[in-house]
Design a binder for these strands. Structure first.
Lengths: 204, 204
DNA sequence: TAAAAATTTGAATATACGTTCAATAATTGA
DNA sequence: TCAATTATTGAACGTATATTCAAATTTTTA
């Protein structure tokens, strides 16, 4: 898009901003929004409290930015995986592989995301939850279209696409959480997850 | 066990206690721990702040009691379903039916539970998270034994029982959340969820 | 029925924390 | 080199809220 030149100043500013956000993310994921003070974020990111307020209007704003930007990144990571060419089966494998990678790369965000969306959320009032929910629905809709395509081409059985999308999402969630919870570093294979659903899905 | 007589006083005390807890649950599930004040719980439960402190040492203690007691109830609900006699398939259906009922009956608790266990939790310090995790592991272990039994009796394919348990849990979670999120009141059928996994599992 | 015991009340207290902003430091440009 | 501009600092302030406890109310006992 834009080919504007970015000054070193601006580059550094962005760098500092994202350092603050990443530091805050780790703290929030470990202790929860209300148990992390601006003081703590300042100390951990090696800035002063005042400086945080030059980057973000207030604590809510910081938190919102953090969630919003990571949701966007997560969502586009999944989207790209589905956009790559290939058969329905290959696309599903790509999608799962991308999801595995995204979970591993940013488990702190994943924790935050699920605790915000599943349950009580300080963001109900703000539009953030709506935004996150919309992206989730979009993801599901894309999966549904994929399954529908497979059904049309007669490689998948004619099952409810909504349930298929939910099932795939659910299977991958629990298995990924189980692995990451245990700090298991052995590779998680997309095919293991796919296989749990596939004999139900594939036409032999 | 105990056949001791319980006085009206004691009965009322327990009644009041559980009214407070249920009221608090709804508030916590809607707004999150830190956005619910003791004042708000007092008003909603029609007691004064001071009285809350006669029932619970402090706010943390109230919250802990609330989660702990509901986790226990949830857990034993699932356990009982598996203890009923029947084939592996029937037991799985019982388990799912019980889970559906428990979700519907106490969606507030379910929200709280998942946002506490998935993500950042104020309770990491206290032993509550450990307690909840232990009960979850126990549930999974029971499911695994069930699958293992089916495999031994040659009604199920010889698949990794851990993954099967996780998959069933994951499928039911996403589908249940999807339904309850949308306030859909049409019945959720255990068989729909089972069928998503079963063609993978059953030996034809 | 009245004293004693138990329970409830909510105003007062203490504290923790988000936010501000005047002072200081660092950077830039002439 | 030295103004001028920009960025950083953290002590001070105000507010929100968890907790306490003396007084008021209700219940029990004799």
């Amino acid at each position: 898009m834009s080919t504007e030149r970015i000054t070193r100043k601006q580059r550094e500013h962005l760098q500092h901003r994202s350092e603050i956000l990443q530091t805050a993310m780790d703290l929030f994921a470990r202790d929860g929004f209300h148990n992390v003070t601006m003081q703590a974020i300042a100390e951990a990111s090696e800035f002063s409290v005042g400086t945080l307020y030059n980057f973000f209007r207030n604590k809510d704003d910081l938190y919102r930015a953090l969630l919003s930007e990571n949701v966007a990144q997560f969502h586009s990571g999944l989207q790209n995986a589905l956009d790559a060419p290939g058969s329905e089966t290959e696309k599903l494998r790509n999608w799962l592989t991308a999801k595995i990678r995204l979970f591993r790369e940013n488990i702190a965000f994943v924790r935050l995301y699920y605790s915000e969306t599943m349950g009580a959320s300080f963001n109900v009032k703000a539009g953030l939850n709506r935004e996150m929910l919309a992206k989730y629905e979009d993801s599901l809709a894309q999966l549904e279209r994929l399954f529908a395509g497979g059904i049309r081409r007669k490689v998948f059985k004619n099952l409810d696409t909504r349930y298929l999308a939910l099932a795939l999402d659910g299977i991958s969630n629990t298995i990924l959480f189980d692995h990451l919870e245990k700090f298991e570093d052995r590779e998680i294979d997309a095919d293991v997850m796919l296989s749990l659903l596939f004999e139900t899905v594939l036409i032999k």
